[in-house]
Design a protein around this nucleic acid. Sequence first.
DNA 1: TACTTATGAGACACACATGTCTCATTCCGA
DNA 2: TCGGAATGAGACATGTGTGTCTCATAAGTA
Lengths: 183, 183
Amino acid sequence: MTVDREQVLRTAAALLSRRATATMDEVARAAGIGRATLHRHFAGRDALVRALEQLGIAECEAAVAVARLDEGSAEDALRRLVAGFEPVAGLLSFLVTENQLFEDGELNEGWARLDARISALFRRGQERGEFRIDLTPAWLTEALYGLVGTCAWCAQDGRVAAKDFQYMITELLLGGARRSVEP
Amino acid sequence: MTVDREQVLRTAAALLSRRATATMDEVARAAGIGRATLHRHFAGRDALVRALEQLGIAECEAAVAVARLDEGSAEDALRRLVAGFEPVAGLLSFLVTENQLFEDGELNEGWARLDARISALFRRGQERGEFRIDLTPAWLTEALYGLVGTCAWCAQDGRVAAKDFQYMITELLLGGARRSVEP
DNA sequence: TACTTATGAGACACACATGTCTCATTCCGA
DNA sequence: TCGGAATGAGACATGTGTGTCTCATAAGTA
């Protein structure tokens, strides 16, 4: 009888990732509950979005933790990170767009933590001599988010193959489009 | 007395690029005209957005034309293209987001033309041996859009330096983050 | 079984953006 | 100077999403 909050959040994430303008009613129906019940668990749309934000941050931080960003080469760590981001990509792009829309300025501290972790990875790669130093860690971090979001959206629309998610992002981010060697 | 439609569109583009949820009233005020007048020139919000879409496409196609994508090396052509995209970046990211939001499916044929042109550039680069062939032209094209949008948004928020717009995008897109050579 | 609790369905008011209309005013051209 | 045209301001109706409330019902518990 009691609503599974986690399951509701995941359903909402899946729906809103596809259609950011979905109604509270649609969210409720998608989760198989009534609109009133949805309101009992999340005071309003803002509260729902903020809960999704917490979920997104938590999943990203989990991905960061699993990726062990400070072990081994920075390149391998980045590959692990992108792999961990794949399941969250849709939610991530939704939240990024949502943040752009409502410029409250008050970006969650969770994002700041995440940015710091990922920036640190790129910085580590620079210090190890793996990554070039003329592109700032901040830009590389944002570029990673951008590519993840773009790829998620493209894959959803079928413009690119979803199975190549990790490959496309890591290869482009690490090596770029230029052909560097051979024949 | 007569309203300068072009100027209204540019003002709207500037405003909506920053705040995609801006009201018709806000758009009118920003353009220095009354809401009624705005409605006289653009039947509704949809019409306004579609007009902005036309403007964005036109400017992008102009940038494509100026960049002479089929002249010289593909790499240089891409640099010219990114340079031409810089002034349109804000509008471009707004339109991309707008398209994501309302999945009418009916994407303007103008975008298809643009995609085709840019994809052709990447394909030409592959055929010339400049670009790697394991990343599809379609993905490279979308990645370009994504990076342009991400960079525009970051620059607006001051997270990266706006003056490095072209450099950050072209260097990342062409060479990637990996350090390939020297000491 | 009886009681408590959570839920679903629906009604309701509210806020807000939108679109339309009117009317006085201003601008431009004849 | 005069008259037509465009504009600005505001009023008005509308649609829609939202938030709150009530009440009957189902689920879980003692």
